[in-house]
Simulated assay, not measured.
Amino acid sequence: MIFIPLPFVIALLLLILFVAVIRRDEEAAPNWPFLALILLSALQSTLSGLRWGYGVQAVGVIAPVTAAMVPPLAYAGVSRLVRTSRRPLPARIALHGVPAALILILMAVWRDAIDIALVLVFVGYAAAILLLMRPGADALRLAPFEGAAPAYRAIIFTAAALCLSAVVDTFVFLDLASAHSERALTVISVGNLAVLVILAIAAAAASRSRPPAETVETAPRPETSEDKETIATIDALMDARKLYRDANLNLDRLARKAGIPARQISAAINRAMDKNVSQYVNDYRIGEACRLLSGTGKSVTEVMFEVGFQTKSNFNREFRRVTDMTPVAWRQRKG
């Protein structure tokens, strides 16, 4: 009977996930760092299978370097949804290549410090991702409003997975350093594989650029006269130009059309309405959807596309949030 280590099976599933994401996003600009993260996770799983399934010790030279590339790719993928970097591409590649270069140097001069360095890299990038997400839902300036919540949750899961990997590596390091290292292999095979799967799935979900989750504010601040002017300007754009019908509308694009800084728009809506910008825009969409459902004979799907939604799941979720009922139930109730 042919023995196929679990890491090889997981690597195959991750490759299938990669192909599925490519096909899904073939009509849109792909998030290359997230796609690379999925492929790198498949490679890491394969290396794990070779080392621990077949005893190929040579892969131990490659695995730490590729592992050091995982957090920078996750951060780069998140950055593409948050902001456009002002640094040129070569400078960004050089900056995020520092962890892999550091591991290469340590492999030559101080191998015992590699595990500690990897833990610091994973924790550092996890903290950097959470720092990017500090503004909450509206941090995803380049993600379309129509689909933001899963992307936000996936990014948080990505940061959590990086922290989990750091915990696993720390445990393995301490276990191997002790006199009894019986649990190290189990933790490596189960813990690291679980982290790779979580990272790949989170990357696939975040690359969809779906709407961010709700912003949680510790203490709402009173609105100002500037907030009222900002909201009045945005309301006028929504009413006159029907911007919410644009399925690709995001905070960055809204800010450019209004001539107002994105941070100012986000802060004004958060303070005055106690909601994030994606909810504010989707409120307009659902308002028009209600009018179309009750006043026309258009199908639910036609209404969904006309008001700016692209998927039924997002449309139904936001419709329930605003009206506490489904679109079909609304139409039936309104006659």
Rank of each mutant, 00 (worst) to 15 (best):
M1F: 13
I2N: 11
I4Q: 08
I10N: 06
I10W: 07
L13F: 14
L13D: 08
I16Q: 08
V19R: 13
V21Q: 12
V21F: 08
I22Y: 09
R24V: 03
E27W: 07
A28W: 11
P30Q: 04
N31L: 06
P33D: 07
F34H: 11
L37Q: 06
L37P: 04
L40Y: 03
L40A: 10
S41I: 01
S45Q: 08
T46S: 12
L50G: 08
G53H: 06
Y54Q: 08
Q57V: 15
G60Q: 05
V65E: 00
A67Y: 06
A68T: 04
P72Y: 10
P72E: 09
A74L: 15
G77H: 09
S79T: 13
R80A: 09
R83F: 14
P88N: 01
A91T: 13
I93E: 05
L95G: 11
P99L: 05
A100C: 07
A108L: 15
A113V: 00
L118D: 01
V123Y: 04
A126G: 09
A127N: 05
A128L: 10
L130Y: 03
L130A: 03
L131P: 00
L132K: 12
R134E: 10
D138I: 11
L142V: 04
F145M: 07
Y152M: 10
Y152D: 13
R153Y: 13
I156W: 06
T158K: 00
A159M: 01
A161Q: 02
S165R: 14
A166S: 07
A166E: 00
V168K: 02
V168G: 00
T170H: 02
F171E: 09
V172C: 08
F173G: 08
S178W: 10
R183P: 00
S189L: 14
V190L: 14
N192T: 10
A194T: 11
V197K: 05
I201C: 13
A202H: 05
A203P: 06
A205P: 00
S209K: 14
R210C: 09
V216W: 12
P222V: 08
D227F: 01
D227Y: 02
D227G: 01
K228I: 14
K228H: 12
I231S: 07
A236P: 02
D239H: 13
D239F: 12
Y244H: 06
L249Q: 04
L254C: 03
R256K: 15
A258M: 04
P261W: 05
R263S: 14
Q264C: 08
D274C: 07
N276L: 02
N276W: 04
V277K: 05
V277C: 14
I286L: 02
E288N: 02
E288C: 02
A289C: 00
C290P: 02
C290N: 08
F305S: 12
E306T: 12
K312N: 12
N314K: 12
F319L: 08
T326M: 06
R333G: 10
